[in-house]
Design a protein around this nucleic acid. Structure first.
Lengths: 350, 350
DNA sequence: TTGAAAGCGCTACCAA
DNA sequence: TTGGTAGCGCTTTCAA
């Protein structure tokens, strides 16, 4: 195996000093155009590829960023959000010479340890802060570690949030959802919640309640969910036992909505005949089921791309403003229809 | 910010030479136990963490491995196999100080470029070779690049395959599937295929045909699929138009099976009443749909863990044998039932 | 504008 | 067993 071509070889070939070769190759000012051209030519002829390792040690950078996912091992499987998110990140990193390091942790302790290790070994130059929790301990941790980070959909209310944030508003979509249901004549609109320690779980609950109140209605029952299919199943069981059932339920995400619908149907409750169901996320699964799921379509790929751009800019010393992308939008499909009472009303009033 | 603690500090604190500190810390022979203990103590007191970068440059290793996924951006989303596979990989890497670099490419050219870049920049020490194709060009590429690799479910037939292979046999499961269908009285058993340029696509077709022949039956129609939900939908449309429909169809994977069932049901064909359907993979989605999908459950997490172990061993210079894990096993659920004719037969013969 | 040289933090070789 | 030292490949500072 031939020895690797180094910048020393390039400098020798071009007949210039090592330092000039470096300056020329990196497009830094300080060499004549003639020299620069000569060095570039030499590099090309030799097939020179800069060593990440040498550069990394010298420049004090890893040229890599990390995404730490906190999941039960099998949940990444059923959460299709990540694929598109990662793909968006990757599309940007690749073009800028950075790599994505993916790590997984089960518990919050695991995750904290992964961040600590990433930091102490200097494995990466920055991280994505995804699926934020209320008072997320990672924020203090990363601040302490002085680790550059970009947060996804952090709570809007926090003053002096220490990292740039990429946001896609979901509140307006929840309002659209509720309006859609109200327009269909629903008067008793429940919510299948996500875990309230998640920012997006809480945000959706709060937005739902507010939107229902804004419509002059009493908020329907809140069923506890956890963003999983199984959680949706249990919630349906719970709802069926309720004395005064809602005619429509807004579920905090698609996966739980699908479990919820599944169980309702298995129990003989018609969707949307008896109960309208709405999800959130816009995952493909929502089009596989019957009825197809009315939902609000987020843009994970776009979020990933913007977050990656922001993180690299931040690492490279730029001042990065918060980024707001096009809001989540309502996608009406077949799981929502006129409320049963409403049909009666229309008949009576006709 | 205090200067980082380096091995020089540790050596000074312990009152030994830099080289002895390195030797002691890495557990290499060549220092007395007393010295080793003193160095370790000094390292602890100082909170020393070895720099990956220094070590990386010096040792000529990246302490990272890569998984390059070839997908349309949105397909990773709906292919839940990867989550568990990655989780299995990660569980091993973390314990051995390696990181997983995840890259994505759309076309085969993209993917080849990613491998080349990983190699020329020495970003990683090895790669996983997943979703092998027939005469996969990556094999020659990685061989040329002298990149250590571990392949997943490579074709058994290849002599002198250049990399260690982690295998989970799927052929026996296909035989189980066909036997299961035959036992249910099916005599006309079709196949919804995967792309034939994939090793696992071809293997499942071949195994299906052989198993049907072994049962003394004529292989039913082969419907072209591509492992996607949409492919399953089209195949169902195609099958419905067929003059002589099969009473059972073995689909090359779960995702296409779900699309296939969906369309059949939308067209009024009962599953399993009119047609029994079987998938392959054992993804969670198969339990979300109705009827729940009979399938063969692979073990992506286990495969990932074994592949990671093998790859790290290989990188560290060990001779790594091929690994065979427990075969894929049939999981009977609700999408398979007695063949319609068979019911009649049983009535007549009663 | 160019070139020499000092690190970055570690491993590994070779004397002592 | 120990300690000095030469790299690994690059960036960057400082003279020339």
């Amino acid at each position: 195996m031939p020895r690797r071509v180094t910048i020393v070889d390039v400098a020798a070939r071009a007949g210039v000093a090592l330092s000039s070769a470096s300056t020329a190759l990196n497009g830094r000012p300080g060499v004549s155009e003639a020299t620069r051209a000569r060095v570039r030519a030499a590099a090309d002829e030799l097939g020179y590829v800069p060593s990440l390792r040498g550069r990394s040690l010298s420049a004090g950078r890893a040229y890599a960023v990390a995404l730490v996912v906190q999941r039960e091992s099998d949940v990444l499987e059923s959460d299709p959000f990540f694929g598109a998110f990662i793909s968006g990140i990757e599309s940007v990193l690749a073009g800028r010479g950075y790599a994505l390091v993916l790590q997984m942790g089960i518990t919050a302790r695991d995750v904290a340890r992964r961040y600590r290790d990433l930091s102490s070994y200097r494995r990466v130059d920055g991280v994505f802060l995804n699926e934020l929790q209320v008072d997320d301990p990672r924020i203090a941790l990363l601040t302490k570690l002085e680790m550059p980070a970009v947060a996804i959909n952090a709570d809007r209310g926090i003053e002096g949030f220490p990292f740039p944030v990429v946001r896609q508003d979901g509140v307006a979509a929840v309002q659209e959802i509720v309006r859609h249901l109200v327009d269909l004549g629903h008067r008793r609109i429940g919510h299948l919640s996500g875990p309230q320690h998640f920012v997006h779980g809480r945000e959706r609950l709060v937005a739902w309640r507010q939107a229902v109140l804004d419509a002059g209605l009493e908020p329907g029952p809140v069923l506890d969910g956890d963003f999983t299919y199984a959680g949706g199943v249990s919630a349906a069981r719970e709802m069926i036992a309720l004395p005064d059932r809602p005619t429509a339920v807004f579920c905090a995400n698609d996966l739980s909505a699908v479990g919820f619908m599944r169980r309702l149907q298995d129990e003989g409750v018609q969707v949307p005949g008896d109960v309208s169901v709405v999800g959130f996320d816009g995952i493909e699964l929502g089009t596989y089921v019957r009825p197809t799921l009315t939902t609000a379509a987020a843009s994970p790929r776009l979020i990933g791309a913007h977050a990656a751009t922001a993180l690299l800019d931040l690492i490279e010393g730029a001042v990065v403003p918060d980024i707001e992308i096009e809001p989540v939008r309502l996608v009406v499909r077949a799981s929502t229809a006129y409320a049963p009472q409403s049909r009666d009303l229309r008949h009576t009033s006709a």
